[in-house]
Design a protein around this nucleic acid. Structure first.
Length: 513
RNA sequence: GAGCGCGUAGCUCAGUAGGUAGAGCAACGGACUUUUAAUCCGUAGGUCCUGGGUUCGAGUCCCAGCGCGCUCACCA
């Protein structure tokens, strides 16, 4: 919770001052400080109350979604011969002409016109019309019909105010387009820009489809700690918090991996978790500090069974939610999700794109090195390979491609390849020029795992501590397994063409004002 | 964290070369019983993000700060 600058010092001095401060704000004082628009609406609020009308409504039984009402209209109902219906929604448009008004209501299903006709309304309800502003939530009951111009309309016989809006909605034509306001005030954005509601519902369906897909294949969804005493499973910087009673630091998880693998040791065969991870790093159009990730582990699986699984999953989701495997973005980009998806070694793709035939020796092409920045000269050959792949190859992989056998040094939790341990038995699935999902043949040799961890801890930052308990777990024996992760937000960006991760997250993190 | 760009009425945006702050929608008053971003007549509405500075004079130029966006860095 954050406080405005003028209250913050009072809060810090204690609850007593905070309460006293709040008490000083009488409704009158608040209305004095309110803007012109709010003031006008408060006047109407008072007027309604004087008429004995509650401007904040009550439970209403029998409200039908607007799209459903609209679809119930049949030509034989004529002008006003349809059934009695109850419609509720936000007033988006208002067209008054003397003794008749047409209003456009909106709910989460769509828009519907209602008509307020003086002849059909009681005097009291007619007076409500004069107090209706754009943005108010109304409930009307009346006959379903159509106007002379053929617009499906509810001819209201009663009107009630479900909630009087004290603040005006954004301009009716332009809507809300300031991205900062859209993210900060999603509660306005969702109805001011109906495509935002559609996109968020699409997100919900995608997540639902994935859960169903996993469950149908015998995977069980589990919940592992989001607050961890060691943040392992990825090399990202964690958020740090503190447990008061235990007086210990706690970390928000950067990945659920090490706990899901403990479950494999515990005897679970097929598990997944789909929930938030937290990484304390830069924010960008592709990074939100908290993001939703799917992680899957299958005992006796491998990177290849994981690749099959994710390929099936994504095509099924696209087919069921988008309705096609030919994804087309507003900017003209086309993505073909038709199976089978390409599988190619990282070295192969790098050679294909840049001509560099990787032989485990340092990169000798000056023109390539120059593009990687000054640090690249100090990189190991393996790091150079990955760097060249990420900078020059990955962005060109628009159609799905499983990039396999990345160098094992960069993937401490994966199994080394039998024929050539320099590389790991892993894939990185790239679609739309970004990594959507990594998948591994998981390492289950405790000694090798300990070595990899030691190497990582020594080389990387000091925040990365060895998870001894995880190594203990491995010593009890973890079955060989396939594992995968998938960034749900990035999947949605790929499916919808959203250019920013914030567009597929209801409440992206924003710096407090 | 760095560079670049943006911040003007409730919303969407203009604002020339430094010279009293503008439009559309919304609001307010009036007319109107079939509108579709209704229309017509009239009225009002501003901490030009904040704070400094230059200048006779700053929305405009300079400096600092805040917020947002983009790019880079960070992120296997």
């Amino acid at each position: 919770m954050s406080f405005s600058p003028q209250i913050a010092p009072l809060v810090k001095r204690g609850r007593f001052y905070f309460c006293r401060y709040l008490l000083k704000i009488s409704p009158l004082a608040m209305s004095e400080s309110a803007g012109h628009y709010e003031q006008e609406r408060r006047t109407k609020l008072q007027k309604l109350r004087q008429l004995g009308i509650d401007p904040y409504g009550k439970r209403t039984a029998g409200v039908t979604p607007l799209a459903t009402i609209k679809s119930q209209y049949k030509p034989e109902m004529g002008h006003d011969g349809g059934p009695d219906v109850i419609a509720a929604g936000r007033v988006m448009l208002k067209r008054d002409m003397g003794k008749l008004s047409f209003l456009t209501l909106r709910d989460e299903t769509g828009d519907l016109q209602i008509a307020l006709d003086k002849k059909r309304l009681s005097d009291r309800d007619w007076q409500i019309r004069d107090s209706v502003d754009l943005g108010d939530l109304l409930v009307v009951s009346g006959k379903l019909g159509q106007t002379n111009k053929g617009e499906t309309t509810v001819w209201a016989s009663t009107v009630s105010m479900a909630s009087k809006a004290l603040l005006p909605p954004p301009a009716k034509w332009e809507g809300l387009s300031d991205v900062e306001l859209r993210y900060r005030q999603r509660y306005v954005d969702l109805w001011a820009n109906p495509e935002v509601m559609r996109l968020m519902k699409l997100r919900i369906r995608v997540i639902d489809e994935i859960r169903r897909f996993m469950t149908n294949r015998g995977f069980v969804e589990v919940e592992t700690p989001m607050m961890q005493t060691l943040a392992g499973g990825a090399a990202a910087k964690p958020f740090i918090t503190h447990h008061n009673a235990l007086d210990i630091p706690l970390f928000l998880r950067v990945a659920p991996e090490l706990y899901l693998k403990r479950l494999l040791v515990g005897g679970f065969g097929k598990v997944f978790e789909m929930n938030r991870n937290f990484r304390n790093e830069g924010i960008s159009p592709r990074h939100n500090p908290e993001f939703t990730m799917l992680e899957v582990y299958e005992a006796f699986g491998s990177w290849e069974t994981m690749a099959d699984l994710i390929e099936e999953m994504i095509t099924m989701v696209a087919q069921n939610v988008i309705g096609t495997l030919q994804i087309e973005h507003a900017n003209g980009r086309k993505i073909n999700l038709q199976r089978p998806w390409r599988r190619a070694r990282m070295t192969e793709l790098v050679e294909e794109k840049t001509g560099w035939k990787f032989d485990k020796n340092p990169l000798q092409k000056p023109e390539l090195l120059a593009g990687l920045g000054e640090k690249a000269a100090h990189y190991s050959p393996a790091e150079q390979l990955v760097e060249v792949y990420e900078k020059l190859v990955e962005p060109t992989l628009i159609d799905p491609c499983f990039v396999t056998h990345a160098p094992s040094v960069i993937i401490p939790l994966a199994r080394e390849n039998k024929e050539d341990p320099y590389f790991a038995d892993v894939y990185e699935l790239a679609i739309n020029g970004v990594e959507i999902s990594p998948g591994y043949s998981e390492l289950n040799d405790p000694d090798l795992q300990a070595k990899h961890f030691a190497h990582q801890v020594g080389e990387k930052d000091q925040q990365q501590k060895m998870d001894e308990d995880f190594l203990t777990a491995l010593k009890y024996g973890m079955p060989p397994a396939g594992g995968l992760g998938m960034g749900i937000d990035r999947l949605l960006m790929m499916l919808t063409g959203a250019e920013s991760i914030r567009d597929v997250i209801l409440f992206p993190l924003m710096r407090p004002v």
